[in-house]
C-alpha cells in the first residue's frame, strides 16, 4: 500500500483529511483512491482533463512527479506520496 500524506492546507476544505494508505499502481490511481475516500478531493488536485492543477505539487519521496498531464508515474507498495500545495501569490 502506498502511503499518502497531504498538505494541511487541504483540511480547510476537507476537515477530516488525514494521511492514509492506498492500493494504487500510478499517481492517477492514488488520486482516484483518495477521491473515493474524500468525495470531491480529486477536483482540488487535478482538473477535468486529469492534469495536475498548476499550483499543486505531488512528490514521490523527495522528488516531484514527472508526468503532470496524465499522472502516470509509477507507485509501488512502499512509495511515499506527498500531495502538497505549490506556492502562489506574491
Amino acid at each position: 500500500m502506498a502511503q499518502v500524506k497531504f498538505t494541511p492546507n487541504l483540511q480547510r476544505f476537507f476537515p477530516d483529511l488525514r494521511a492514509c494508505e492506498v492500493d494504487a499502481a500510478t499517481i492517477a490511481e492514488v488520486v482516484d483512491a483518495v477521491d473515493m475516500r474524500w468525495r470531491g478531493l480529486g477536483d482540488y488536485i487535478i482538473d477535468e482533463q486529469g492534469a495536475l492543477r498548476k499550483h499543486v505539487n505531488i512528490f514521490i519521496g523527495d522528488e516531484l512527479i514527472r508526468d503532470k498531464r496524465r499522472l502516470s508515474d509509477a507507485v509501488s507498495a512502499d512509495t511515499r506520496v506527498y500531495i502538497m500545495q505549490a506556492l502562489s501569490g506574491g
Partner: peptide, 10 residues
C-alpha cells in the same frame, strides 16, 4: 535545479 519550482508565477 530539479528541486526548483514556481511560486505565484508558474
Amino acid at each position: 535545479n530539479t528541486h526548483w519550482f514556481g511560486a505565484g508565477r508558474d
